[in-house]
Design a protein around this nucleic acid. Structure first.
Lengths: 140, 140
DNA sequence: TCTTTTACTTGCGTTTTGCAATTTAAATTG
DNA sequence: CAATTTAAATTGCAAAACGCAAGTAAAAGA
């Protein structure tokens, strides 16, 4: 029903991603190829387990990730990015470039942002390929 | 002291922009050339005035906007984007494209996202120019 | 069987939000 | 110039979200 505050695309993005943790979970899945609860719970910012559970559920509910029971270990849940989740790569890259330009409180080499600025599409493809590799290694 | 949770650029962005309102304030300043409290308080999502005050203060504190008393009306505060604030244009454009691709619950024509995808830099320049025009009209 | 691992869940105090009403100061109007 | 209107911000309070530590359930490993 009165589900959304408006039909503005930025509002839509903010309703899904707008908090202190959601994008960090996505970051770890995209840039660090993490795919389990325990790996994600070790992110350097220190997310609490109840919050992580909640964010993973929300991300699944909004179609950004998929959750499945690991085929080798029934305790494990395997989280993977959907097409829409992978679609966030350009957003994260822009945020990275912005932060790097905005502050020196951040660890990104100039070489990295330079590369992104020079050829964004190539940077996106590179990350997608790295992820594909990681997930094929993870698969038995 | 222990100011930031990490030195990751995405974390930095999230610490500044990661909530339900901040990016909507920036959106209205960038895309709708709004520059006063009352204009911003009328955004379609319905922001409360205490929240708006808080977000404007935070945005100023993090160097994304500047606040000054209007030269013609001492009740008015005039908000303007800094260089760093304008640097968020590419981020907002990527979020717009992502939302448009992610859901149909959003009002963006395909023409708009197509244009952005075809030539991002041109889209950024166009928005910057439009803003420059609006602010020069606003100036006495 | 006993221990460890993985993914949650619970309880509880703190913080942030949302909403309506109110306040302050400055401009406008009659 | 007194009364009204406007712009920005503040206050009070209930509801929701968060942060942390501890606890639980189920499966795996020793």
């Amino acid at each position: 029903m009165g589900k959304h505050r408006s039909r503005c695309p930025m509002n839509h993005a903010v309703e899904i991603l707008g908090d202190q943790w959601t994008l960090l979970v996505v970051r770890d899945m995209i840039f660090h190829a993490k795919n389990s609860f325990s790996e994600l719970s070790e992110m350097p910012e220190g997310i609490a387990t109840n919050i992580l559970t909640d964010r993973l559920n929300r991300l699944e509910a909004s179609g950004i990730i998929e959750k499945r029971v690991d085929s080798h270990d029934a305790r494990k849940r395997n989280y993977s990015l959907t097409r829409h989740g992978l679609g966030l790569i350009p957003v994260l890259l822009e945020l990275m470039v912005w932060s790097r330009d905005h502050t020196s409180d951040v660890d990104v080499t100039h070489a990295v942002t330079k590369k992104i600025k020079r050829d964004r599409e190539a940077a996106v493809v590179e990350i997608r390929d790295r992820l594909k590799q990681a997930s094929s290694l993870a698969r038995d």
